[in-house]
Simulated assay, not measured.
Amino acid sequence: MTSPFDLTGRRVLVTGATQGLGSDVARTLAAAGCDLVLSARSRDALETLAQALVTEHGTRVEVVPADLADADDTGALAAAALATFGGLDVLVNNAGISVPQRVVDVDAATWDRVLAVNLRAPALLGSRIGRAMAETGRGSIVNVSSVAGSLALAEHFSYSASKAGLLMATKVLALELGPSGVRANSVSPTVVMTEMGQRVWGEEAKAAPMIARIPLGHFAQPSDVSNAVVYLASDASAMVNGVDLTVDGGFSAA
Rank of each mutant, 00 (worst) to 15 (best):
P100F: 00
V103K: 04
V172Q: 08
A154T: 12
I129T: 01
S146T: 13
T170K: 07
A40W: 04
T55A: 15
A66R: 06
T55D: 15
A152I: 01
V144G: 12
N93T: 09
V147N: 05
T48A: 12
A134F: 13
A108H: 11
D89N: 15
G96F: 00
V114H: 07
D67S: 07
D89E: 10
A134L: 14
P122D: 08
V172Y: 01
L119M: 13
S127T: 11
I129N: 06
P100A: 00
L124I: 09
S150D: 02
A79M: 03
A152Y: 01
A121G: 10
L167M: 05
N94M: 04
A66E: 13
L175C: 06
V64W: 00
Q101A: 14
A174V: 05
M168Q: 11
V147E: 07
V142C: 09
P65W: 11
R102K: 12
A66G: 08
A79S: 12
L167Y: 11
H156N: 13
V37I: 14
A148C: 06
V90Q: 05
S127Q: 15
Q51F: 11
A80T: 02
N93F: 06
R43N: 07
L49G: 03
G58L: 03
R102T: 01
S145Q: 06
L175A: 13
A109K: 12
L119W: 10
G96P: 09
E47F: 02
L153T: 10
L77G: 01
V104N: 02
A116D: 10
G126M: 00
L46T: 04
R41V: 08
L88C: 07
L46S: 12
A40Q: 06
R131P: 00
V147A: 14
E135Q: 15
A76N: 11
L82W: 03
A108Q: 13
I129D: 08
P65Q: 09
D72P: 04
D67K: 01
E56Y: 05
L82R: 05
E56Q: 15
A174I: 00
R113I: 03
L82Q: 11
D105L: 07
G137M: 13
A45D: 15
A95E: 04
T55C: 03
G126F: 12
L115Q: 14
R41K: 09
L91G: 09
E56A: 15
N118S: 10
G87I: 05
L36C: 14
L166H: 04
A95L: 03
A80K: 14
R128L: 13
T84C: 14
R41G: 08
A154Q: 12
V37L: 10
N118Q: 11
F85S: 07
R41F: 04
